[in-house]
Design a protein around this nucleic acid. Structure first.
Lengths: 186, 186
DNA sequence: CGCGGGAAATGACGATCGTCATATTGCCGT
DNA sequence: ACGGCAATATGACGATCGTCATTTCCCGCG
């Protein structure tokens, strides 16, 4: 069980670094945080990094993909637990919900958008996830595919707009609420 | 007229640097491009930069604001020239249109969103511009304010989603077209 | 209980980048 | 044409950052 235990230990640390990166990249941007800060925030020192990732770019790609997978799983788990008429309202509410602690947006499509757009290999994964989100939303709401795309676009756009108007709290809040209510009212 | 001429010349260069920065920041990200590259692309050398801006951060803030002002002016000029029933269709089409050369998105709300979100002083300007865009859209479409917010959110969100699914050209295109058509059909 | 090996820590190197002091250029009025 | 001054160029310094070679630590095994 040596090898297995070792692999488990290594994977635990790998996971810890990755989770830190997912958070910090969304907060400060990919170039706004260095390897040493990521390792320090993971309770490690900078040198050990290269035992877990080939280089920083590999971590960036893995973190972008992990972020969107987490969001997708969160929404899927959530929506499957719903079966009432108000499901989409709650879905939208969940989508727009920020980090419970910081209340900052946790939607990678919004916070990592430009970074994803500059990395073709990451784009391919995002395209698959977004395709799944579209069909899931269409199925869940009973609307057509185009309407589902509109809904997702509005949710992502509202997150982006609210994040960049955060110093005008009333406006940021109005954007979130208006989009949610208009989408539910359809 | 010495002073005036001098100021004109200096302002011309300032403007050239700023325009380069607006483009490069959207393409490569704020931290993805250095002062020297901005100056080189402006036909200058790196050292002269500090005669025009206090530091790089000052340029970043000015460029973010210029980007959103340009977009706002573009849309305002465009919408004022319209008076037919199809106005909003064209409005949405214009909003979603990329750079004629590169076909990449030119919406600063989408491409600079996270950078704006990290700078409170820039956020304040964005909040004002977005407020104006909302009332303008509401007035132009004859819809309510909440509906205008939904429309703008959807346009921004579609730009973000299309940019990050660009390697799946069919999907990116479908997102753009679906949002436009759904918004027009309302 | 010590030993081996994988994981993490240390420390350093090279490149990049923001910044600025200084030198040079080129445009203006006299 | 020339002199002065603003605008730009040159070159360098310090800090930060990604990377990696080397050393140290810690865990599970014999």
């Amino acid at each position: 069980m040596t090898m297995l235990a070792a692999r488990t230990r290594k994977e635990t640390t790998h996971e810890r670094i990755l989770k830190t990166a997912v958070r910090l990249f969304q907060e400060k941007g990919v170039d706004g945080v260095g390897v040493d800060e990521i390792m320090r925030e993971s309770g490690l020192t900078h040198g050990g990094f290269y035992a877990h990732f080939e280089n920083k770019e590999a971590l960036v790609e893995e973190a972008c993909i992990r972020a969107v997978d987490d969001k997708f799983d969160e929404l899927t788990d959530f929506i499957e637990a719903l079966d009432d008429d108000d499901a989409f309202n709650k879905y939208a509410r969940r989508f727009l919900k920020g980090d419970p602690r910081t209340d900052s947006p946790t939607c990678p499509m919004a916070m990592l958008g430009p970074e994803v757009a500059r990395r073709e290999s990451v784009q391919k994964v995002y395209a698959r996830r977004i395709r799944k989100l579209i069909s899931q939303t269409a199925a869940e709401t009973g609307e057509g595919r185009a309407q589902a795309i509109l809904m997702l676009s509005a949710l992502v756009g509202a997150t982006v707009l609210a994040a960049q108007t955060n110093s005008d709290a009333a406006l940021a809040r109005e954007i979130m609420l208006s989009v949610r209510d208009e989408l539910v009212a359809r």
